[in-house]
């Protein structure tokens, strides 16, 4: 079902994890099936120095998360902003049609992490308000309501790190 490249990134995901003192955090939720991606970036001189991700999702969601981190690591913010969902899917040698929507997570999260970073710089919106707004947006984007993780899980969700 998946290309070798997808399977490679799925079984050996690059840049998994989190960055404790991230400069920007982007969260993207998948309104179609309820998957979740969280991206952390470390920025220096407008270059993405480090990037890590955490994903809950299908094979395609994990592989596209991994792929996008490789694509933007070491790139300038301006370059990273031009990454598209289609480009991520293409870099993986394509995705099955039913899985195309999964690649939306990856590029969206990158863009949001950059927005978050830019919003935190002096003179911009505070990070917190932006972050909250984005998390909510990530949950309800699209025509269909995606599960809002924090509200509906009937077990306790571990606290997000700040």
């Amino acid at each position: 079902m998946y290309s070798d490249k997808v399977m490679d990134h799925f079984f050996n995901p690059r840049n998994v994890g989190m960055i404790q003192e991230a400069d920007g955090v982007g969260i993207a939720g998948n309104p179609v099936c309820g998957d979740l991606l969280k991206l952390f970036i470390k920025v220096k001189d407008d270059v993405i120095e480090d990037i890590k991700f955490q994903t809950l999702g299908c094979g395609a969601a994990i592989a596209t998360s991994s792929m996008v981190t490789e694509m933007v690591k070491g790139k300038t913010l301006e370059e990273a902003k031009t990454v598209t969902n289609a480009a991520v899917a293409q870099a993986l040698g394509g995705l099955p049609p039913v899985k195309m929507h999964c690649s939306n997570l990856a590029a969206d999260a990158v863009h949001k992490a950059i927005e978050d970073y830019e919003g935190k710089r002096p003179g911009k919106k505070s990070r917190e308000s932006l972050f909250k707004g984005e998390a909510a947006e990530a949950g309800v984007r699209g025509g269909r309501e995606a599960p809002a993780y924090d509200e509906h899980l009937h077990h306790e969700i571990p606290e997000e790190e700040d």
Binding site: P13, V16, M18, K52, T55, I62, P158
Partner: peptide, 12 residues
């Protein structure tokens, strides 16, 4: 789980 944003454990 180590990869999941819903799990607490930091992985790096």
């Amino acid at each position: 789980r180590a990869m999941s944003p819903l799990t607490q454990t930091p992985t790096s």
